[in-house]
Design a protein around this nucleic acid. Structure first.
Length: 666
RNA sequence: GCCGCUUUAGCUCAGUCGGUAGAGCACAUCAUUCGUAAUGAUGGGGUCACAGGUUCGAAUCCUGUAAGCGGCACCA
């Protein structure tokens, strides 16, 4: 064996390095600039510390801040360690547990000694972190035996770390990283060479929250500190600006500003839709009805409340009851001092989903194989008693209306029905301007049914997406092991909004369990009874959530066809009032949602107010327009107004107010 | 459900050491008729989330409840 390693560099050159040398030595040999800029190394593709000695001939690429993804991840991971060190310095006795990097920063979970950490503690912790960074403490890797490390954690009272060390899989030795000579954490690494490589102005601690140890609510509640971390101050500032912009498009804030809806304590988790908000709803409902009518669905409406025995039979009473609203089937006692209910009545429940009711419709009469596929659609209003901490504006509510349909079909129709659904969903998401990813959630650990059934069900959905031409990177095609429902695999549609966030809305699940439980059957060509397969599917998911997503996606500036108020006619002087009333009448006749603003206010004031309410078009009328029969059209996000004859403005608004699916057929 | 924070006028918020509440916007009235993001004046409006407690006295301190916010867990 030679006493030199051959180290190949990305430019193709090869350097001979003596035994015991490290990537840092290579960087130094190339030049002092690189030695200073190097943050870590990729050796044969694996990200390692600069100080990790070579063990064989290797391909080496030095990582600098130009390799942004690697550099960010290293920096964030180091910020997490510095955070942990700072917290232990300020709050002795606090146990450290676990702290990874995240998409925009890092967090670390602590088991506090006396009290939970709060946001008031963050400035002091940030200051302490900056001290540790300024001290430029070297980060040094050491390999310890498992026993040695466990006993050190136990000695230091770090019970969480000791538990973790004992349970880490495999029987290799464990690695620790020293920060200087006085603090260490168990970590696989790699890390930057020293804390001084971090930019003290490129991070900010953002919030404190609770988090369960190892993500299990049976375990202790820890204090989690979140931070955002970057390579430099500019990146941090840009990120903070992005957060601010995201906050501005928060649907809860815009919902109030645009007078769309409100929520209040007395009906928490259920939405009060105001006239403006419900105009969006109605437009979506009309859109969806056109879509499902054209796609061969039939719309139904089913009861809000059903007997508990029905829910027992469907399996919901046993498995889902904690999320259901149950109702006693009796006339309540009206005596002032008596109990309201007897406690002896039978139970009913508000429907948490529509599927059983649709099966009950299917079961009416005898179905022939010729009746299939039978596609039953409902704007189904459901109630679920969600955990209170989960409620969030329109996105997670207790009463919601699904665009829900169930396709009852024969085994041989599954793939084609699923394919057709992929095409339908694609057209609809495009109409709203969303891009999306299609994913297949595969069998979970806890599940019903045989392996053969799962093999088949997964293959059918996969085949449907392939036939739709969507099992490609372009459609974000991905399979998610273990993510399916307990009774079936499911296809999921994840929308990407204007600022890059994703929302799961659409779904398609093939279900053989519920038809069995509720005894749905049809007569086949052979004269025998067969079980239909039930495809559960939704495109909006729920109207509430979809409207929330639309508001955030468009930052309130909805396309004209969805805007609650499509145009405001605003006068400059009262001499134009009669003309304005006539303009409003003509716009209304053309089907435009228009309002008049004849108030005795300056035009500046009116412009400002309607702009804040995100009205897409403002028709400004003064003496001149009244005399000439024109309008001065000021449109959102268009710099200059345009004066045009009224007829021209009406034609233009009418075109814009036409829903995209209707436009396509004109 | 769990951890932390919050709750004062319709909205956004201020309120010091415990001494019975204040601004801007909105609303009403009056004046103003004005050319593209806030015209001026005047006025009305509050059981300080709710329920207890401490105190001579509570928006303020303590306890409980509820809702909201940020996370966690949940989302068959």
């Amino acid at each position: 064996m030679s006493d030199q390693f051959k180290i190949s560099l990305p430019d193709g050159s090869v350097r001979e390095m003596p035994l015991g040398s490290t990537p840092a030595d290579v960087a130094a040999a190339i030049g002092p600039g690189l030695a200073k800029a190097a943050l870590a190394a990729r050796v044969d593709g694996e990200l390692v510390d600069l100080s990790r000695p070579f063990t064989a001939d290797a391909q080496l690429a030095l990582v600098t801040s130009r390799d942004e993804a690697d550099a960010l991840d290293l920096a964030r991971h180091d910020f997490a360690h510095v955070l942990a060190e700072a917290v232990q310095a300020l709050f002795p006795g606090t146990q450290i547990t676990f702290g990874p990097s995240t998409d925009d920063g890092f967090y670390y979970d602590f088991a506090p000694k006396d009290r939970q950490l709060t946001e008031d503690d963050l400035p002091a912790i940030e200051a302490e972190m900056r001290k540790i960074i300024a001290a430029d403490k070297p980060l040094r890797r050491e390999v310890w035996s498992r026993e040695q490390l466990i006993s050190r954690w136990q000695q230091q009272g770090e019970s969480f770390k000791a538990e973790w060390a004992a349970e880490l899989p495999g029987d290799e030795d464990l690695t620790v990283y020293w920060s200087g000579e006085d603090w260490l954490d168990m970590c696989r690494g790699p890390h930057l060479p020293s804390t001084g490589k971090l930019d003290p102005a490129a991070f900010k601690l953002t919030r404190v929250s609770g988090a369960y140890w190892r993500g299990d609510q049976a375990n202790a509640m820890l204090s989690r500190i979140y931070g955002t971390g970057w390579l430099n101050k500019k990146q941090l500032a840009e990120h903070l600006t992005r957060l601010e912009e995201a906050g501005k498009r928060d649907h809860r804030k815009l919902g109030a500003e645009m007078d769309l809806f409100h929520l209040q304590q007395e009906a928490h988790g259920s939405v009060f839709w105001h006239p403006n908000g419900f105009k969006i709803w109605r437009e979506l409902e009309a859109y969806m009805r056109r879509a499902i009518d054209a796609a061969g669905y039939r719309e139904v409406k089913t009861p809000q409340v059903m007997d508990a025995r029905q829910w027992e039979q469907s399996g919901h009473w046993g498995k889902y009851r904690e999320n259901m609203f149950v109702i006693p089937d009796e006339v309540p006692n009206t005596e002032d001092d008596g109990p309201v209910i007897s406690g002896e009545a039978d139970w009913m429940a508000l429907k948490p989903m529509n599927c059983p009711a649709h099966v009950l419709i299917f079961r009416q009469g005898i179905k022939s194989y010729r009746d299939l596929p039978l596609r039953l659609y409902e704007n189904g209003c459901c109630h679920r008693n969600e955990p209170h901490g989960a409620l969030h504006g329109l996105m997670r509510v207790r009463q919601f209306t699904q665009d829900d349909a169930h396709i009852f079909c024969r085994e041989d129709q599954i793939v084609e029905e699923a394919r057709a659904f992929c095409a339908l969903a694609d057209r609809i998401y495009q109409d709203f301007g969303f891009t999306y990813a299609v994913k297949l959630a595969l069998r979970p650990d806890q599940r019903f049914g045989s392996e053969a059934d799962w093999d088949k069900a997964e293959a059918e959905l996969r085949e449907a997406v392939v036939r739709a031409g969507m099992a490609t990177d372009e459609y974000g095609w991905e399979e998610l092991p273990g993510e399916g429902a307990f009774y079936a695999p499911k296809l999921e549609w994840h929308l990407t909004d204007a600022i890059g966030r994703t929302w799961q809305v659409g779904t398609l699940q093939s279900d053989r369990v519920l038809p069995e439980r509720l005894d749905a059957s049809y007569i086949g060509e052979d004269g025998a009874r067969h079980r239909p397969v039930m495809l559960h599917r939704a495109i909006f998911g729920s109207y509430e959530r979809f409207i929330g997503i639309l508001i955030e996606h468009f930052a309130g500036k909805l396309p004209v066809w969805l805007a609650p108020v499509q145009a405001v006619v605003a006068t400059i002087v009262s001499d134009a009032d009669d003309y304005a009333r006539d303009v409003v009448r003509q716009l209304e006749a053309a089907g435009i949602r228009v309002e008049a603003d004849l108030r005795n206010e300056k035009i500046n004031y009116k412009v400002r107010e309607h702009s804040l309410k995100k009205v897409p078009h403002l028709l400004v009328l003064g003496k001149r327009e009244a005399e000439e029969g024109t309008v001065a059209l000021r449109s959102m996000d268009v710099e200059h107004q345009k004066v045009m004859p009224l007829a021209e403005a009406i034609a233009m608004l009418k075109a814009q107010a036409t829903p995209p699916d209707v436009r396509a057929t004109i």
